[in-house]
Amino acid sequence: MDPDEVEFLGEKQYVTIIPTFNSGVIHLISGDVGPFRASLPVRTPLWMAINLKQQQKCKIQQPDWMDVERLESIREDEKLSRTFTKMPNEHYMVIAKLLLGCASDDIPRADEIRTIIKDIWDIRMSKIRSSVDALVKNAGSYAAVDNLTVMEINSIRPILPHALDQLHRIKASRKRPGTQSLGTTTFVSSSNNRSSFPSTSFIS
């Protein structure tokens, strides 16, 4: 999946903004938002908050978890834990990227926050890489991926599913009686059987 599409999903999350204008309720298809009173906080979807921010019609309040102390403790937990800890938000990376991108003037200590979130991401990515390595070496047929966020899952796609697909093919050809014993020979054998059409390395 395109990272932009993951972002699209994340933009549905609600954030709190402080509008600089007055307006009644906006009746969106996805639900009502507002009313807006200047300097009174109100919850809006992220995509709307970003649009209003770009028009300089609001300030965006950072989510509770986007705070240096809170993130530092998350980073320590992530370092100490062998498994993946639960992130404060399913789309933490998307939200952080978007808010720090367009509203860094509204967020105190934005640079520190950016660094810590990058650290957390890096720690988790290195865990992901070693888990993938272990999974493929053990030729696993399934694995739990609890607490991984969509963006993280997307970062190991397509390589992990494809690797497991190939393993699956090798296992299948090994176990099925009457076929060649090793997966690596399937291409050769299939082109022998159907000599006129060598480009059939599709799944058959």
Binding site: S141, Y142, A143, D146, N147, L164, R169, K171, A172, R176
Partner: peptide, 27 residues
């Protein structure tokens, strides 16, 4: 039923609500 590449019955696995997994689509 875990789809293990052969037609015999593979291992079984349970899912809790909200749990996430990578698994063969056939299963």
């Amino acid at each position: 039923v875990i789809d293990d590449g052969n037609d015999e019955d593979g291992d079984l696995v349970d899912l809790n609500r909200g749990s996430q997994m990578i698994i063969s689509y056939k299963s």
